[in-house]
Each structure stands twice: as structure tokens, then as C-alpha cells.
Amino acid sequence: MAEIAEVQKPEIKKREPLFGPKERKLITDPLNDNNPITVQVLGICSALAVTTLVWPSFIMAIAVIFVCAFSSLFTSLLRNRIPKQVRMIVQLVIIATLVTVVDLTLRAVDYDVSRQLAVFIGLIITNCIVMGRLEAFAMANRPWRSFLDGIGNGLGYGGILLAVALIRELFGKGSLFAGSPIEWKIIGPSADYMLDTEAISWLGWYQNNNLMVLSCAAMFIIGIFIWIHRTWNPKLVDVS
């Protein structure tokens, strides 16, 4: 967090390009060095809960990217008018509005998924990533950059969400994208081999691992991700 703030000192005099290196860094930083889940360990609650299936996780990721980006944008636009004492409440109103918009839209567009995600769309309001970015970044930066920062953090969250969900659904249910227009049953006894049955029927030996469906599997997987991430990126080891 500290290094972001340093890099992002606003320079008002010079007119900057819309997609300069700093802007690019806003998007890529949360994907790696400052990933909200594996580095900052925020937003774990929903990451454990919704990642049993890939498709709802995908929708959830899009919802968080949307909320994160636009709440950053609006907060940043209002940042000089928000009194310090009530800034949290103002931020909450913005987040809650956007989340309600997402919830209402999702219920109209894909009712099944909105039933699966149930309470977790509403809980985006309390997702630490969103409010954390508003406090740490959007309150002190210009709208365009805050918007990019929101997208970046949403992507960083969504990427991990999808990776966890891919592992959990594949090994827990033997399928991928269940509930979406393209539903694959890949391994396990219920696999409907898209190709020649004889050719790949050996995949049928797999027994679905129920542990993967339980929340604790997500905990293990995220833990392993954090481990791999730190081994692969030595910069992170010095931070703590």
C-alpha cells in the first residue's frame, strides 16, 4: 500500500497521457505485487463461499469489478466535497447503491445465478477490497486513476476467484461452467464426453472429491496460491 501512495503522487501541472506507464501500473499492480487476495488477504469471505462453481464466480467477479471501479470513480469525483467526519457513510451510500443496481440487474438477467450467489452479491457492500480502495486510493486521487485502480483491484480479486473456482469445480464436481450456457462435465462418472466415448472414457474413473466442495478446500487452495505467489515473487517476502 505504501509504495502505491508514493508512486501515485498526483502531478497536476503536466498533462498526462490517458494510458501512461503509471496508469498501466494501476491495473497490473493488483494482479501481482498488490493482489487483494493473496497479498493483502482481503475479500476472503466471499472468495471462500462463492467459488464452488466457476460460472457464479465469474458473475461475482464481474460484479465486484463493476462496483469497485464505479465506486472509486464516484468517490474520487466527490472527494473534495466529502467532509472528513462522514466520509465512510458517504462511501457506503455509493457502494450500497451500486451493489443494489448489480443485484437488481442480475435478478432480471440471470435469475438462477442470482439465486446461487444469494446473499453474497449483497455482501459486496462489506467487501473489504471495495472500501479499502476507496479509503486508500480514491479519496486522494483523480477520478480516472481511481477508476483504473478499481478495475485493477476487481480484476486481481476476480482472477483469484476464477482460479480457485476452476480447481474446486473440476475436482469437486467433475464439471466446468455448470449452470452456464456451455456446461462441460469433464471427469468422473457423470462425464458426458464431448468426443468419442471410447477414446477418453478412462476419465470416468475419477470419483468427485467432496472436500473440494466444502469451504475449507478454498482455504487450502488460497493458502497454496499465497505460498506459490510468494515463492515466485521474491518482492513479497520482504514486505512482511
Binding site: 466527490l78 451510500v93 447503491t97 443494489t100 443496481v101 440487474t105 435478478r107 432480471a108 435469475y111
Partner: peptide, 26 residues
């Protein structure tokens, strides 16, 4: 700001109400 927020949400909720009810029934 509250007025804007209330207006946006109220419009959206009433606008999508029919679709919501249809989806739920189905």
C-alpha cells in the same frame, strides 16, 4: 446525493419489477 441515489434505485426497481416477477415464477 441521497435524492439522486433514491431516484436511480426507485426507477430501476420499478422498471425491472415485471421481469423479476416473471423470472421468479419461472
Amino acid at each position: 446525493m441521497t435524492t439522486v441515489v433514491a431516484l436511480v434505485l426507485a426507477l430501476l426497481a420499478t422498471g425491472l419489477k415485471d421481469i423479476h416477477e416473471r423470472n421468479e415464477a419461472i
